[in-house]
Design a protein around this nucleic acid. Structure first.
Lengths: 231, 231
DNA sequence: TTCATGCTTCGATCGTAAGCGAAACGTCTT
DNA sequence: AAGACGTTTCGCTTACGATCGAAGCATGAA
C-alpha cells in the first residue's frame, strides 16, 4: 500500500466515490424526486439486480446519504436530508454547465428547466420566479443567518391557505435557498418551499409527472401561479 | 454490458467518480489553496508517482475541473473556476457534518476553522465575520440575482486601498456567496472576495501558511481586521 | 551541442469493487 | 400452514482503473 498521505480535512473522496458509481448516481437522482422509493424500484431505476441494489443502498445508508424506513415487507429509501439534495443539485449544475450530459437533451429537458421538483420543493424557471416574486414584495427578507418571512410575508402565505404553525419549531429551517442548476439562481427550499409545492398540487395547479422530476402545471394553474407570484 | 439505463439530466457520476479517487481528491484539495501547483508538486501532494499523477491530471483537465498553464518546462495546474471551488467546499461541508473526516481532528483543524483560504478568498470564522459585517452596515446588499456593493460599500472598499475598477467588467462576478463548510454560513467570494484576501496579506495582517489552507493572522492584524469589520 | 529536468506515453501488473444467481430470511396473504 | 413476494446474505466471477517503471519528448541550462 502506497503512502495514501493522511491529509487533514473532511473526506471528500468517500462521498465522491459513493456518487461516482453510475448505479448509485441513478438511484440518488431518482430520489431527487423527493418520493421515497423501495429497494426494488431503485434497482429497476438503476438497471441492476435486486442484490446489487441492496449492496449499494447499504453503502449509501452507512454513509448517511440516504435513510431507510421499513414498512411491512418493503423498505422505503429517501435522501437523508435537504443537504444531500442540495449537494446533488449543485453537482448537476456543474455537470450541466460543463456539458457533461449523459444523453442528448431529450424531449423532457425543456419541461425540466421550466418546473421540476428539487428533492421536495419547486425548482426551475417557475421556482426562481416564485423566489424573486416573494423577494420583490419584501415577503422574503434576508436575515443574519439565512432568509426568513416578513410579517407581510406571513400574512400572504396564510392567504394561500398554508398554516405556518406546524412548519416552525421543527429542526428543519422554514426558509432556505437552494441553487438552481438550470437557472443558476437561488430558489426557495426548506419547510416552506416544500409546503408551497404541496399546496400547488392540492390546489390542482400542478401535478407531478409519474417517474420523473417534471412538475406539470395546467394552463389554468399556471395562470393562477402567475397571479399569485407576479414576476 | 448491462442496461446502464440512459437517464436524462446531467452526468453527476462522471464528476463524482473523478472526485472519488483519493489521489485526485488530494490534488483537488491541495488546489483549494488557490495557488497553481506543478504536476510534480501535485504528485507529491497525492502521494503517487509522476506518471500516475499525469494520468489523473489529464482526466481532471478533460472534464474541465482543472486548467493547465504551461510555463517553461513546468505545467501549472489550478482549479478551472470558482464553481469547482464552491462544489468542493460544499462537499467538504457535507462530509464534515457526517463526521467523514479522514483523520482525527489534527492540531491544524482549529486554525482551519478560524481562517482559511477557500480557493481564492477568505473562509472560516473570520470569513463569515467579514461577510456579516459588510451586510450589517448595508455595504453588501442582496440584488435580484445575487449580491452587490452599495454606493456606501464601494466607498468603504476604496478606503481599504482596493481599486474596484479592474475587478469589474470581467466575466467574473464582483460579489458572490460561498457556503462555509465549518460555519455553515455564507461568506464572500468572487473578485472582491479574492481582492480582499490579497489586500489583507499586502497589509501584513495575515500570511498564508505554507502548504496548507490556513490563513494565519498576526495579533496586530487581527485587531485591525476587527476594527475594519466589527461583528 | 550536450546534458539535466519536468512531464507524458506506453506496457504490464494488480486490487478492488461491481455484478450476478442461488439460497436464506421476513412479512404479508389466503 | 403454505405459499408469494420483497429484501438481504453469500460465494464467485469479472472487468475496470489505479499504479508503477522504463522509455520518449520537450524545454532550459552549460
Amino acid at each position: 500500500m502506497k503512502d495514501t498521505r493522511l491529509k487533514d480535512g473532511p473526506d471528500i473522496a468517500r462521498i465522491g466515490s459513493l456518487i461516482g458509481d453510475p448505479a448509485r448516481a441513478n438511484m440518488l437522482t431518482a430520489l431527487m424526486s423527493g418520493k421515497a422509493l423501495t429497494a426494488s424500484e431503485l434497482a429497476a431505476e438503476a438497471g441492476v439486480s435486486p442484490s446489487t441494489a441492496s449492496a449499494h443502498l447499504g453503502k449509501l445508508e452507512a454513509a448517511a446519504l440516504v435513510s431507510q424506513r421499513r414498512q411491512g415487507r418493503h423498505r422505503y429509501f429517501a435522501l437523508a436530508d435537504d443537504d444531500v439534495g442540495g449537494l446533488l443539485e449543485a453537482l448537476m449544475g456543474l455537470a450541466a454547465r460543463r456539458g457533461h450530459t449523459r444523453t442528448r437533451t431529450g424531449p423532457r429537458e425543456p419541461a425540466l428547466r421550466r418546473a421540476r421538483v428539487c428533492y421536495n420543493h419547486l425548482a426551475g424557471e417557475l421556482g426562481v420566479q416564485l423566489y424573486d416574486s416573494l423577494r420583490n414584495r419584501n415577503f422574503l427578507v434576508v436575515a443574519d443567518d439565512g432568509i426568513g418571512l416578513s410579517p407581510d410575508g406571513r400574512e400572504f402565505i396564510a392567504t394561500l391557505g398554508i398554516d405556518l404553525a406546524p412548519l416552525e419549531g421543527g429542526r428543519r429551517p422554514l426558509c432556505k435557498t437552494c441553487l438552481d442548476w438550470s437557472a443558476r439562481r437561488p430558489h426557495l427550499a426548506g419547510a416552506l418551499g416544500s409546503a408551497l409545492l404541496d399546496r400547488f398540487q392540492a390546489l390542482g395547479w400542478a401535478a407531478r409527472q409519474e417517474g420523473s422530476r417534471v412538475v406539470a402545471f395546467s394552463k389554468a394553474g399556471e395562470t393562477r401561479f402567475a397571479e399569485s407570484f407576479p414576476p
